[in-house]
Design a protein around this nucleic acid. Structure first.
Lengths: 202, 202
DNA sequence: AAAGATAATCAACATTGTGTTCATAAATAG
DNA sequence: CTATTTATGAACACAATGTTGATTATCTTT
């Protein structure tokens, strides 16, 4: 049996401190690469003592890690329950998961833009790509029992990278196209391939 | 008029030094993230004086940059001459560019695996994605005059990310599938979408 | 509201890597 | 062979790191 720890609710001081630090961190990440961000300047900007920083994080990369992990926990929660497939079968509308996924990126726009941006390593990207993999592959296997596992994985990775690529593009240039356009376009590309370019919009 | 500098051919000592440093760098990058690599340990492993390192590079990230730039110059050379399109039109075979591109990754396997791996930022990835963009978009516009620029760019990014995703997957797990399989699969996914999974192999 | 527990602050400290400099030795190109 | 270029080794000031201990401030619980 698991004991539901009934979260003691984090000390308000800790919450505020972390909030200040993470806020300053995001500001800095919008200005420069992570390797040029020092604990010292981060704390000065956050208005927090440097010693306090080390009370919560081992270093700047640990801070990044913790923020990533929190986000990924949120993302993984989306995987429970709903089927995951980008498309259920040709021409159907997008599932609940894909909607929730897009909303997830929209809700965490600033942080996701940084984590998927050029200044930071690919650990978050890799985690996002891999998160829905197993479940997705299973669903594809059910839909296409004759397709080999290799084939399905190739298809999965192609689609997943393509989709995240569009997400990244949107996060960097929000005005280029909307998330709504993104989802419907991805759906049509997945179901029809290049035909997408030949057909009329809508 | 440009004066073709007729490269004076780099001093042998310099060539050897850089080779040693870059070799040690790759070794280290296979072991740990770049942020944990210090100039000191890098030079010790390379058997090069630390002062010598600073004679050629400003810091570890400058070293990375120079290696990236050299690779990207090679890649951009592939863009001259040949048409670039992943597929010319449904069901045709892949063009010269895509073949050269795959060979490029194969020839520079170790370095590309690192540059597209998780430990490093996304600058190289972004550059690889964007390199063929303009040319590619132009060619798509010619093939599909009725498609909007937005539509074409969306298609381009989806395909480009998907393709590089498969490349990355292969670089990390070379045994999962061959480059040959990769190319033919990508072609079929692009032309047919999910149908790819329904059809028999080959 | 008081008491005990927890967190934040501040100053100090040893440590480590950085980036530069200089004199010297070694290798190279012409 | 000679002038030039490069690598070496040691020394240096500097900056950020990560930790410590004493003190103050703030929370939580009763």
């Amino acid at each position: 049996m698991e004991k539901k720890a009934a979260k003691p609710r984090e000390d308000q001081r800790v919450r505020l401190t972390k909030q200040m630090i993470q806020g300053a961190f995001l500001e800095l990440l919008n200005q420069k690469s992570i390797q040029n961000i020092t604990v010292k300047e981060l704390c000065e900007r956050a208005g927090v003592n440097r010693g306090t920083f080390y009370l919560h994080y081992h270093d700047v990369y640990d801070l990044l890690d913790q923020m990533q992990k929190a986000l990924l926990a949120e993302l993984n929660a989306l995987l429970d329950g709903t089927p995951v497939l980008f498309i259920n079968t040709p021409r159907e509308t997008s599932g609940a998961f894909i909607t929730a996924l897009v909303q997830f990126f929209d809700n965490n726009r600033e942080l996701c833009a940084v984590l998927l941006g050029e200044n930071i390593d690919k650990k978050f990207l890799a985690a996002v790509i891999d998160a829905p993999r197993d479940k997705s592959v299973r669903e594809y296997r059910a839909l296409f029992p004759n397709a080999s596992r290799q084939k399905i994985e190739i298809f999965y990775y192609f689609i997943a990278w393509g989709f995240i690529g569009l997400i990244q593009q949107n996060l960097r240039h929000p005005s280029a196209f909307s998330f709504k356009t993104l989802v419907s376009s991805a759906e049509r590309i997945i179901t029809e391939g290049v035909q997408f370019l030949a057909e009329p919009d809508g």
